[in-house]
Design a protein around this nucleic acid. Sequence first.
DNA 1: TAGAATTTTTACCATTTGGTAAAGTCACGA
DNA 2: TCGTGACTTTACCAAATGGTAAAAATTCTA
Lengths: 205, 205
Amino acid sequence: MPDGNAKKPSRIQKRNRRVILDAALEVFSSYGYRGSTLDQIAAEAGLSKPNILYYFDGKEAIHVTLLSRLMQTWLDPLVAMDPLGDPREEILAYVQRKLDMARDLPRESRLFAGEILMGAPRMMPHLQTDLRSLFDEKCALIQHWIDAGRLPDLDPQHLIFSIWSTTQHYADFDVQVRVLQPDDPDPHARASLHLRAMFGRMLTL
Amino acid sequence: MPDGNAKKPSRIQKRNRRVILDAALEVFSSYGYRGSTLDQIAAEAGLSKPNILYYFDGKEAIHVTLLSRLMQTWLDPLVAMDPLGDPREEILAYVQRKLDMARDLPRESRLFAGEILMGAPRMMPHLQTDLRSLFDEKCALIQHWIDAGRLPDLDPQHLIFSIWSTTQHYADFDVQVRVLQPDDPDPHARASLHLRAMFGRMLTL
DNA sequence: TAGAATTTTTACCATTTGGTAAAGTCACGA
DNA sequence: TCGTGACTTTACCAAATGGTAAAAATTCTA
């Protein structure tokens, strides 16, 4: 019974768990939770369905595992915002990191978006704890910068919302972006310039 | 056989079709296409499942009907951007209209977001025609304003993307916003001020 | 290498779900 | 008010899907 909490995951266990989670990420991010089937995940992973269920307690357990691991990755760029750095450059660097994530981890972005869009049925606890405390902390930091006259007067919470939405847009609404810019060889580069210009202006005293 | 293309929809037909579409919007926007069942829609509409299928050819037909009608509503605020108005005020007014839509039509916004997130399997034709031509037209308009020196040099396409993403964020990621701002009595008002400030700065020469 | 433990497959099962056939019920014009 | 067409319900069905039991195969260890 290797699922749940095994003490010493064997080599095979480690490999297959990773393979399953990767396949599940691919499938869940493409079709959503309800739109994905264990058969699809099994096919993508190159394993049989009962074999999948040997490693995870069920479809929901796979999804929950993915979301839990995702949360860490998701918060890292915000964690890296340094109170000791230059306010403007710290925030602009955060925008850039977020945009890079949308390009490099589109599946993770869409998985997250789908979960939130559905009302976060499985992620709510994580939001209320991890995300919430980090969000409050960084909002306070930005407010502190504002009070010290190092940033113009702005709304820290909605600034972060705008950073999230504009960057994740390029992953979550990827199809739409591609339909409207079919010939752009490097949409990411132009997006980066645009966002740097926009937030750069906003953060200038 | 009232589905498809009836000539003269009776009073009952009109009422029930409307009731069904409204129920389907509620259900689809909450659980996604695959996550929604005809039984749910039937229950929400107060009708039996076979009765639903008397008015629509099937689950997919309901979804397609909703998406088709939605596209019009969705494009209206952009259509209203007037080439003869003041560039800055026209764009800022568009931002405001979009934000109002996120507040007043959150179900429509989430339905649209879910469809795009899943790769627009049913909406792709509409995107490639209606949306595409309007997008190109308004990008050209903005570029024209820039060339005339009436707007600062910016990227019209990505400006529109940023307007879409920041405004729809308040509908699509509503749960997240509420988790992070549990005490805000009027999040919409603050969002409006924030977006006006942000895009206002961006559009200032 | 023998035996134990782990991993994988085969053969199922119960439920859900989109959809249909056909019988009944209702509304309305002649 | 009567008959015809529009509407609704009842009773189903086939396929898909999450999940299980147990046998078979493989790997690890003493």
